[in-house]
Design a protein around this nucleic acid. Structure first.
Lengths: 339, 339
DNA sequence: TTGTATGCGTTATCAC
DNA sequence: GTGATAACGCATACAA
């Protein structure tokens, strides 16, 4: 059932029907009433493709994330979709699997669909390249994870929304040192730039503090799925504290350690990263560096909406870490915002 | 940059350009080569809206879920998107918040976008009503959660993909009774039909087994977010075992119980529902009734693809539960498929 | 093999 | 206030 059907059935022209439905141009009350009733009766639903073509706007926002099943990305998606919808946009969310090919595919889908703005979460694609190649102005990057961020002269471009990894790690290490732990290890997953950045920072902070050098450990990106796989990289003598790349990894570590009879935080302290909901439910509850995940998603969407109308991207924002102290470290439970 | 630009720049007609790019109609090698080069150079990206309008197909599949942040739905979405993409469709996934209004909005978005098939996950909307009102043939329902399923004469319509709640609960209760537990409690979240169904089943099975009557407890739908909220509904004397509506709830319960000094499974056994990844990482690891979440999503998508071409929906499928025995119950760790 | 012309469903610019 | 009509970008039936 198309607009033409509605118009015919209401005995008016298509133009009039269109105006009546959109409430747009000048139209008489009765006519509008009539058309709307007919449309409702016929269960008329406007065709978005046709409308987009005509008005040359899609009112669509795209989000490229790694994986729906990753809690970090799920939270970001939630925030993104919520403000997109509130602003009258439809969010279309596509997983890129954290791989170049996948993200390029995703990007292509979004461009074909005419997304007016695109957000890339933890993307391995450099937003600068994308913006150039796709000549897309409204592009924001959430927690970029491409090679570039490791460069010494890296400066986040406009539209970047990131969590302050460096100060987060710094604060976590200082917190651990303050608790008296001197031998700290770091467990990373995979070898993504963001992971490397955290490791490097931990190494440096520990060195500057004159503590024992960081024990850097690495597991496969989804080692957490295999019981025991994460724990197996922790060899004796045990470090006193372990900082993990993310909460999922930390949770797996917590499980493996305790399954092996190691007490947490008795024998060893564990700190996670991200602040996913499940980090609060483990036993012991996980101390973690929380990122404002939902807020980052919301911010990405609102930034895009702004950029679409103004044509300009705001300066990069660096969100502070929040150290949430729970039971997996010795400290008293507390929350330290802007850590 | 449109197809006309490419055609002009290549010195051919639009029709020829179109054919060259789509590799469709009869076209000479050289021409095709030329056009493709020009298109690549110009960074031409076809406009999906225009194409949809022209071919009267969108190659789009829709999925309505409750919430991206819910692990069950995230897994379903993962499977759904994967097979949709593999079949050449774009998946557009919209959260409906588990509320009538939200799902209707989501459904409307999908229809406007011309989704050729729609899957509703844990939807409060009755697929029968939707199919009638939207005159949509390709509609599948994953784990329906509308009033209808509680009716005595409920028969799942074609296109329904569900987890066998009744036998799952039955098996869980029998498993617990077999372990020697006689006083069993059930903790539900919210008052959705699916939740009620599980509770009723537990009540019945316990009665039929001549065990102590079920202690039915209920918490708010997101009580798990508040530390202690779930545990607070468990009063003394403690039941011997607790079956939870879902894993998230069970994880929260595990946390609250242990924080209160109650030993699991020493003092009390806990069983979850769904088999989300985090259920394997808790301490103790959670015994749960696993649903093939990713598979359900995959199946939903492939069913839709089939339905689109054949015009017919397959009979409802009832997927078996898999009891995954881990450490939150006394039994020996094992996995019982088709429990 | 290639080009011309038309339609897809909607909006918008005009006359009336 | 309302009704023709021309786009929007692409695909295809048909003519050449």
């Amino acid at each position: 059932v198309t607009l033409a059907d509605v118009a015919a059935s209401a005995g008016v022209s298509q133009a009039t029907a269109s105006r009546a439905l959109r409430g747009h141009g000048r139209i008489s009350g009765p006519t509008r009433q009539l058309v709307q009733e007919v449309a409702a009766r016929l269960r008329y639903v406007p065709n978005a493709a046709a409308r987009s073509l005509a008005i040359r706007r899609t009112r669509t926002l795209g989000l490229i994330l790694v994986d729906f099943a990753d809690p970090f990305h799920a939270q970001v998606a939630t925030g993104f979709e919520a403000v997109a919808a509130a602003a009258g946009y439809t969010a279309i969310i596509v997983p890129g699997a954290g791989k170049r090919r996948g993200e390029e595919r995703a990007m292509n889908v979004l461009i074909e669909y005419g997304a007016e703005g695109i957000a890339q979460a933890a993307s391995v694609l450099d937003p600068m390249d994308v913006r150039r190649e796709a000549s897309l102005e409204a592009l924001v990057s959430i927690q970029p994870d491409h090679r570039g961020i490791l460069s010494r002269q890296y400066r986040p471009p406009p539209g970047t929304i990131q969590f302050d990894d460096v100060s987060a790690v710094t604060d976590a290490i200082h917190y651990l040192l303050g608790l008296g732990y001197r031998e700290v290890a770091y467990v990373g997953a995979g070898n993504g730039p963001s992971q490397v950045l955290r490791r490097r920072t931990a190494t440096r902070v520990l060195r500057e503090a004159g503590a024992a050098p960081l024990r850097a450990l690495t597991v496969d990106r989804d080692a957490w799925r295999t019981p025991g796989a994460v724990g197996s990289v922790i060899s004796r003598p045990l470090p006193q504290a372990i900082l993990c790349y993310d909460d999922t990894l930390a949770l797996a570590l917590l499980h493996d350690l305790q399954a092996a009879g190691v007490s947490v935080p008795g024998d060893i302290a564990v700190v996670g990263f991200d602040g996913i909901p499940y980090a609060a439910l483990s036993t012991p509850a996980l101390t973690t560096l929380a990122a404002p995940m939902v807020e980052m998603g919301r911010m990405a969407a609102s930034t895009l909406v702004q950029a679409i109308s103004t044509g300009r991207l705001p300066p990069p924002v660096l969100l502070p870490a929040t150290l949430i102290v729970r039971d997996s470290t010795q400290g008293d439970p507390r929350i330290v915002p802007n850590a």
